[in-house]
């Protein structure tokens, strides 16, 4: 049970979102300037692929173009749901840990999802995830929509490792005919995936710390943080 008032905690979350946004922006700017200075240096060890006749082709140094990924596949999440009750604010906590399979109930914003992004040559990325899931049983139906647009910067600081700070919004809309309930949540999402590039730098393994900070406005405040694992293919 929380002790601070509901409005206080909402204000704290707004401040936390602002602070994290500034940190993410700073990291992106630092990464951009670092990349800019590196671009001036001559490339000395670009990977090459050679055929039997000795014809060599220089492989791209950093992924660019489209990426298609599966994110929030499994990992650790901490979810806090806050709402106003008759006796004041009520806070409920949900912890979940999954390894190699998402088997436990879903609380919060995280569920395994397909994501698509476009990576510009200078590192900026634009993309997001969209998903729908509907379940029908005898006398019961439930639907959920997830929409998560985002922008980021791919910082390719080593040939096999990169950082991909991203910021965006996550909408979660759930409707449940069983008890005629509906939930519409909006959050600011800040993510900092560590990308390990394998398979000729076309396959990225993501270790993704993130926070989803619920924006004030609904009857319920839903906040989430965690570390999840995903995978991305760069085309």
């Amino acid at each position: 049970m929380g002790t601070a008032s509901f409005d206080d905690r909402r204000w704290w979350r707004v401040r936390e979102a602002r602070w994290l946004s500034v940190v993410a922006l700073g990291a992106a700017l630092a990464a951009f300037s670092e990349r800019d200075s590196r671009a001036a240096e001559p490339e000395t060890s670009s990977p090459q692929r050679c055929d039997a006749d000795g014809n060599c082709q220089v492989l791209p140094a950093a992924p660019s173009g489209f990426s298609l990924g599966v994110e929030r596949l499994f990992g650790q999440t901490w979810v806090v749901r806050s709402r106003d009750g008759t006796d004041g604010s009520i806070e409920e906590n949900f912890d979940s840990f999954n390894l190699f399979a998402a088997q436990t109930p879903h609380e919060g914003y995280s569920s395994p999802r397909l994501a698509a992004d476009y990576l510009f040559d200078f590192g900026l990325t634009l993309g997001g995830a969209l998903g729908y899931h509907g379940v029908r049983r005898d006398g019961y139906s439930a639907d959920a929509w997830v929409l998560a647009p985002r922008a980021g910067y791919f910082w390719h600081f080593s040939r096999w490792v990169g950082l991909w700070p991203r910021a965006g919004l996550t909408w979660l809309i759930q409707h449940d005919d069983g008890d005629s309930s509906a939930e519409d949540e909006l959050a600011v999402s800040l993510e900092l995936p560590l990308v390990i590039l394998v398979a000729q730098q076309r396959l990225g393994l993501l270790l993704e710390p993130y926070v989803d900070i619920g924006l004030p406005g609904g009857a319920v405040d839903l906040d989430e943080r965690g570390v999840q694992v995903g995978v991305t293919v760069f085309f």
Binding site: L73, F74, F100, A101, A102, Q103, P105, H106, S111, P112, R113, L114, A129, L130, G131, Y132, H133, G134, V135, R136, R137, D138, A142, D143, A144, V146, L172, Q174
Partner: peptide, 22 residues
């Protein structure tokens, strides 16, 4: 009986074996 339709994500619960897995 249960019917599940999911596009790009799985968010709702339910019974069955189809949890996303590696």
């Amino acid at each position: 009986d249960q019917t599940s339709v999911s596009v790009f994500t799985q968010h709702q619960g339910g019974f069955g074996y189809s949890a996303p897995r590696v």
